[in-house]
Design a protein around this nucleic acid. Structure first.
Lengths: 218, 218
DNA sequence: CTAATAGTGTCTCTGAGACACTATTTG
DNA sequence: CAAATAGTGTCTCAGAGACACTATTAG
């Protein structure tokens, strides 16, 4: 615990937010254009502001995204990470359905946990941390961030998990594991070449059985 | 991503470290005396220093602890958390065997995930975060931080897990789950009123089977 | 009818957890 | 011997995963 408010030079403190989404090509991350190339939306911390406030402001003003919940990943603090000076940056992440993003926004594909193009500063490492964090949270509960929106078929849920965990999953076993944490609405999808599928919703507060981790992980 | 090195007033950035240990009474956390009562060892970030460097320096100078590995928990950033001004603090945590601590050091007991006495600033919340993090990491591998030292009996390992997860564990099932991640040395303990127990060591890089999570969690 | 996709009945076999037994020490 | 603790053989039963079947649509 610091014993005196020291008079040392202080670092600038910034925030950056990795917003992951799923396109027809797989995982992707929202980026903005910058002098350093593709970058995560970010900003400097304003006086009296919390990191969460700053991150929300960055999403709103840089990426046109409003009302998303996100969380801290970790602080990126290499002294030379920003050539403009001493800048610490707290990386945040979240996920959102592609349909909820502003239509003209730019995204960069993510493969094997990393962005497919070079990114500004250490933002590629932030994306990698966001994907690792995504996997951890998606192991515990069905699409907790709502990448699929409120209602989805079991096929869409399974395809999402196959993209996130980069492996194929058996349809019947996956289904039986998932059914404890979601419930059928009785409503059916419009068909496309086969029996219509039921639409499911997340059971509030529900989580997967512990055994789902084994299915997903190995 | 910040587009200009802004000329806003900057916060002070501090680090605090929760060092958890196990005493005969259970979980405890290393504290130092301060103007605000019991506090975690902490310090302000020096120019050009990384957070990890600062945290190591705090442990060394405030608590007399050297050479410990630790990791970030999260940034505590409430604007009014420190009455001296705008101070962000990155909480870190680690665990260490009580025998490896300086003998005259002070510790505070932890019960149900919280310190049993009031602490400075939001340090009690940091301790709670450290305990939650401890549980997550101890679910994956046998005593990864070496709270028990290099060699231990299965009884000591099980007692540790009973303290950390606050529940009793069946000796035979726990044993069979653990044996994949540790190996017997052939050496035996000195006895105290019964058959001597074998001493075990961690298998490097080993982790518990996924099913250990079910045993520990519920 | 066939093709395509959704959903389920059922079998097998692993292995978790429980119980009770054996093993090795002290006194 | 009894008491105490360490370690294990074994039984049962849940349930994971696999397979193949049925169900419901389009054409």
């Amino acid at each position: 615990m610091p014993s005196d408010l020291a008079e040392y030079p202080r670092p600038s403190v910034a925030v950056d937010v990795a917003v992951l989404t799923v396109t027809d090509r797989g995982l992707a991350v929202v980026t903005v254009d910058s002098r350093w190339g593709d970058a995560l939306p970010g900003t400097f911390l304003h006086p009296g502001e919390t990191l969460a406030d700053a991150a929300g402001r960055a999403l709103r003003t840089k990426a046109g995204i409003e009302g998303l919940a996100f969380h801290q990943l970790r602080m990126f603090d290499a002294p030379d990470r920003d050539d403009r000076g001493w800048v610490l940056s707290m990386a945040h992440s979240t996920e959102v359905a592609a349909s909820a993003l502003p239509p003209q926004g730019r995204t960069v594909d993510v493969e094997h946990g990393r962005p497919t193009v070079p990114m500004a500063f250490d933002h590629a490492d932030m994306v990698a941390a966001a994907v690792a964090d995504l996997r951890t949270r998606y192991t515990d509960a069905p699409d907790p961030s709502g990448l699929l929106g409120a209602r989805f078929t079991l096929l869409r849920l399974r395809r999402l998990y196959e993209v996130v965990f980069d492996r194929t999953l058996p349809k019947d076993t996956f289904r039986r594991h998932a059914l404890g944490a979601i419930y059928g609405t009785g409503e059916l999808t419009a068909v496309d070449g086969g029996r219509p599928a039921e639409l499911y919703e997340r059971r509030p507060g529900a989580s997967f059985p512990r055994t789902m981790a084994a299915l997903l992980g190995g």
